[in-house]
Amino acid sequence: MLCEQCHTRPATVHFTKIVGGDKTEYHLCETCAKEKGNVFAKAAQAFDFNHLLSGLLNMESSPGFAAPQPTSQRCDVCGLSYNQFTQTGRFGCPHCYDSFSSRLEPLLRRIQNNGQHSGKVPGKAGEQVIRKKTLDHLRAELQQAVAAEQFERAAELRDEIRALEQSLGQ
């Protein structure tokens, strides 16, 4: 569920505010919850103090609110922070795997046998994967050719790489 305030970050803080018998549920991200928290603290003096207090206590007991880490690393596609991932155990989008790859490796070693997929490969994506691997291979070969001053071979490799890059849409 997305934060109902900013609609960009996942809602990790959930609480209910009751004022004069009107119940309102809030599903917010840590940032928005903190902002709301201040507003509520002021409003609390003017309105229904006890109910609001219980709402604030709930907020504080939420792990997302208790330990905000503004410096936490984020996925540049979906905006999920690593901190939010550790709270929910779930990633926000497929790109998170690349965004957090350095921290993912030790985690995968703990929960999975091995870090390299060896099962089924989808037809279309599989083609892409194979082309990318070939591309990596050709680039390495090109560097070697240049280093060994085999310029004719290097020119051939460069043309092959260009053609492949175009077919991959890069």
Binding site: P94, Y97, D98, G115, H117, V129
Partner: peptide
């Protein structure tokens, strides 16, 4: 799909 991690 990811070449290293498989189906995401």
């Amino acid at each position: 799909f990811h070449d290293r991690y498989g189906y995401l």
